[in-house]
Design a protein around this nucleic acid. Structure first.
Lengths: 122, 122
DNA sequence: GTAACTGCAAATCCTTTGCTATGGA
DNA sequence: TCCATAGCAAAGGATTTGCAGTTAC
């Protein structure tokens, strides 16, 4: 895998954001630096970075979002507005599932976020 | 939400399968009983059942899969072949994340399944 | 009776891909 | 130099949606 300016830019964008950006959002930010970058390239680079385990993919109803691996964390996902909130507490598992090799795990908390709870009250 | 034969059939199919079926697969099975059922209806009914928390959606790279809620369980997902394996052990959490209301959580173990490990050896 | 649901087909939207040109090592 | 990668645009594929007819309650 070659080190292109497109790739290092995209990795930087993901690593410096805690907003769980979509490919489209990353594309818009990347264009500030590289106006000619294409959305196809953004998708291709993101897929490569996920394969290389440099970033993580979060599958959502509105398309995939991408997350940095700066610190171990999990997610809370709001059922109403689909907001993703980082849960920094590190939960540890020491687990065995048959003869399958566990490489990683993720815990997703699902519920209603503070903002949506407030809206419900009204 | 009305109780149609399409809906009860689809709920039965999901509840009696442990194969984490896709909409397309559910459609094919449903056609044995209701030959005129349409794929659009399958998608619409599945969305309704997920909203009503009668079944669960599993987002995968090849499209969504649907899972029954017969027994509390989590999933192991193979990175290579994308197989989903049920993990029946019941892990319990008593957790608080700010003022957000936690309704549910899911734990996904990610790794390489036994079959793919064997293939790698060769 | 009537509002909700179905079937059908077209549309939508995210994502991938083929091709040619470019640039990193 | 040479092959992986970028840009562009077209294709792909899962899912949604509009509409007219049907059905559950």
């Amino acid at each position: 895998m070659r080190n292109t300016k497109q790739k290092s830019l995209i990795l930087n964008i993901v690593n410096n954001s805690y907003d769980h950006l979509t490919a489209e959002e990353i594309y818009e930010i990347a264009r500030h630096t590289l106006p000619n970058i294409s959305l196809g390239t953004v998708y291709r680079v993101l897929n490569g970075l996920v394969d290389d385990k440099k970033i993580k993919r979060i599958k959502m109803s509105d398309g995939d979002h991408f997350d940095n691996l700066n610190e171990l964390h999990n997610h809370f996902i709001c059922e109403k507005c689909h907001k993703i909130i980082d849960v920094m507490d590190s939960i540890k598992f020491d687990y065995k599932i048959g003869n399958n090799k566990i490489v990683d795990y993720e815990i997703n908390f699902i519920g209603i976020c503070e903002d949506c709870l407030k809206k419900e009250e009204n």
